[in-house]
Amino acid sequence: MFKISKKEVKDILIAFVVISLSFTILYSNRNTDAFLLFLPMVMIGVGLGFILHELAHKFAALHYGYWAEFELWMPGLFIALISSFFGFIFAAPGAVVIYGNSMSKKVNGIISIVGPITNIIIAVIFLLGLLNFGIFTSLSNEILFYLANIFYLGFAVNAFLALFNLLPIAVFDGKKVFDWNPIIWIVITGIAGYLVYLSYTGGVTHLLTL
């Protein structure tokens, strides 16, 4: 049964706010006017990406009979905020902690990979919105501007979150996926890496100037 405690809701909301602020600082280049403009748009992409990523881990763990709950990691919150001022983000505000008996590498790998895959799916949905942006051109220029940025930021942030979490180090998802199946890790990481590459090319970022 899917259950979520009040503490877990509070932890997710705090992490969501801090990660949203961090990405907004990064994309606004610390400009106050740009910060206020980008914050609500970033929150849409981060909200979908961060919350659904963690819930994917939780649902997968529950599916295999384990109890799982998201818990904040306070040092990670501060690192995320501080790193955003230096042009990058170390996004590790917390994680879904799984409680239960011993777990096989396969189950651990599957539970771990569903988070990045969720981010990849969300990134592709936003990318499809960008690639088919012509269907929205009947809207006003102001609405087009906001819509283009929501699509782009949702795409870029989720692509980054997928690739970042697939790093094969320490307690990241990528380490558990790699230990389970290196081939699957290479394929999924390659997809995430390509999406991140696209997010930094002129092919999609030109929409930001609409």
Rank of each mutant, 00 (worst) to 15 (best):
N158Y: 04
F155Q: 05
V187A: 10
F50M: 11
T137A: 06
E71N: 07
A92T: 15
Y64T: 04
L161C: 01
S20I: 02
L36D: 00
S199D: 05
F151H: 10
I191H: 03
S22F: 03
L147C: 03
W67N: 14
A56Y: 09
L139N: 07
A162C: 13
D179Y: 10
Y64G: 09
I135E: 02
I51T: 15
S199Q: 07
G100V: 04
W180M: 13
G134E: 13
A91S: 13
F160G: 02
T137H: 10
Y66H: 13
V171D: 13
F59N: 06
I184A: 09
S102R: 14
L128G: 13
P168C: 10
L163S: 11
L144I: 03
M41S: 00
G115T: 12
I98P: 05
T201I: 10
A156Q: 06
N158M: 12
I111A: 02
G94M: 11
G202Q: 12
S138N: 15
L147W: 09
N29C: 00
L39K: 04
F151N: 06
E71Y: 08
L36Y: 13
L21D: 01
N108S: 14
I12T: 13
G100P: 07
L62V: 13
F86V: 06
I125W: 05
L195R: 13
K7N: 09
I111S: 12
N141E: 11
T201L: 13
L48D: 05
L167E: 00
I44K: 00
L39N: 04
T209Q: 11
V177H: 15
L195D: 02
F178Q: 01
V124H: 01
I121C: 02
G49W: 01
N101W: 06
V9S: 06
L26Q: 05
S22T: 09
Y27L: 14
G193S: 14
S140Y: 01
D11G: 01
N141L: 15
Y194S: 07
L198N: 03
T209N: 14
V114P: 06
W67S: 14
T137P: 01
S140N: 12
H57S: 08
N31I: 02
F50D: 05
P168S: 05
V97G: 00
V17P: 01
M1E: 10
K176E: 06
F2S: 01
S84R: 02
L144A: 07
L48R: 10
K6D: 06
I89S: 08
N149G: 07
V157Y: 00
N158F: 10
A56V: 08
I4D: 05
D33T: 09
N158G: 08
D179K: 10
I150W: 01
Y152G: 05
I188R: 03
A162S: 09
A159S: 15
I121D: 08
I111K: 11
T118Q: 02
M41D: 00
V187K: 00
S138F: 14
F145S: 14
V124L: 12
I184M: 12
T189Y: 11
A92K: 14
G100A: 09
N29D: 00
G87E: 03
L62W: 04
L208W: 10
F164K: 07
G193L: 08
A148K: 08
S104K: 02
F78S: 04
I111H: 12
V171I: 15
R30K: 08
N181R: 12
V187F: 10
L207F: 15
T24N: 04
S22G: 14
L127I: 02
V107C: 04
I51K: 02
Y152D: 06
I125K: 11
F155S: 07
F160K: 03
M74E: 09
F178L: 08
